[in-house]
């Protein structure tokens, strides 16, 4: 028995408590789940106060004498007026500050990342002479048709109907691929827990 056996047993009991839900909903599962919510909030609060609040507000203000940090400090505290009825409108001030900065800063990088770059790499050399050229034709057609599927300003009839029909087929292939990847993701998480139970806890398998 190694020194980690007791902590690992604690972790294993919590693991089994959660797995018990597979049989049916039960108090053990609910208790573990509720405990995790509290622990998570507590953990986050400790880290937030000790690494974020202290380092960005308290220490600069009281130890380094940076008086200006009082302004965002007060703005931050004004957010708590959201919890009152009468003064809730004051919380709009810091919220406006936050939303203005976040929206303004997001504008051009979002256009670049999600629009310009995507269009740039859809305008690619096409041709039937090489596999790459054929693939590029497929990419252009598929992106165009998929986009057209979301374009509702003309009725999807006739040629437009055909284009949008190709679009929905492409999107369905994408969703199928996403489903395949989702299965892989969920199984991976189970593998992690099984490796913990059989390896770290019971020592039945040895992983390097």
């Amino acid at each position: 028995m190694n020194g980690e056996f007791i902590p690992h047993t604690v972790a294993a009991l919590f693991t089994l408590a959660i797995f018990s839900f597979l049989w049916k909903d039960n108090p053990l599962y609910k208790a573990a789940e509720s405990l995790a919510v509290g622990l998570s909030a507590g953990y986050f609060t400790v880290i937030l106060i000790r690494t974020s609040l202290m380092r960005t507000l308290i220490d600069p203000l009281f130890e380094e004498g940076q008086v200006l940090v009082i302004i965002p400090g007060i703005l931050g505290l004004l957010m708590y007026l959201r919890l009152t009825r009468r003064w809730t409108w004051i919380s709009r001030y810091p919220l406006a500050f936050y939303m203005g900065i976040a929206s303004g800063a997001a504008l051009s990088p979002t256009i670049l990342a999600y629009v310009v770059r995507q269009i740039e790499y859809t305008i690619v050399p096409m041709g039937f002479g090489s596999w790459e050229g054929i693939t590029n034709i497929l990419i252009v057609v598929m992106v165009f048709c998929s986009l057209f599927y979301f374009f509702f300003s003309v009725p999807h009839k006739g040629v437009f109907g055909g284009v949008s029909r190709i679009g929905i087929w492409v999107i369905m292939v994408a969703f199928g691929a996403q489903f395949g990847f989702t299965v892989m993701a969920r199984i991976s998480l189970l593998i992690g827990r099984v490796q913990f139970l059989l390896g770290d806890w019971l020592g039945l398998i040895h992983l390097e």
């Binding site: 299965v183 991976s188 189970l190 992690g192 099984v194 490796q195 992983l207």
Partner: peptide, 20 residues
């Protein structure tokens, strides 16, 4: 040097995918 946990995990992944 490498860890073989993800490599061993892929064996399970193979069987699980076949099962699903």
């Amino acid at each position: 040097s490498y860890t073989d946990a993800p490599l061993r995990g892929m064996d399970v992944q193979s069987i699980e995918h076949l099962l699903i």
